[in-house]
């Protein structure tokens, strides 16, 4: 049995959490900014729903993982 027992560690090394949080949040915020710029500047007739949703999805993926790593880095282990 002793051979088959192996310790479990996290899928991402703990030391990377702050870096990952910073970079993913930065990317996420940039994409969010482009989303809102697009919303505010494009006129109603020439707006493409697909483009809006894709930008939103990309931004939310980055913001979601970024905030998860931010939580983990600050010690809130979810």
């Amino acid at each position: 049995m002793a051979q088959s027992v192996k310790p479990i560690s996290s899928p991402v090394p703990d030391a990377w959490y702050p870096t990952l949080a910073v970079f993913m949040l930065a990317i996420g915020l940039v994409v969010t900014a482009s989303f809102f710029i697009y919303e505010a500047t494009s006129s109603r007739r020439h707006r493409s729903l697909a483009k809006e949703l894709i930008t939103g999805a990309v931004a939310s993926v980055f913001l979601g993982f970024g905030s998860l790593f931010l939580l983990l880095a600050s010690g809130v282990y979810v």
């Binding site: 931004a59 939310s60 913001l63 993982f65």
Partner: peptide, 9 residues
């Protein structure tokens, strides 16, 4: 978290 942000968008 992702679905939360996506709902916002």
């Amino acid at each position: 978290l992702i679905s939360g942000f996506f709902l916002l968008f």
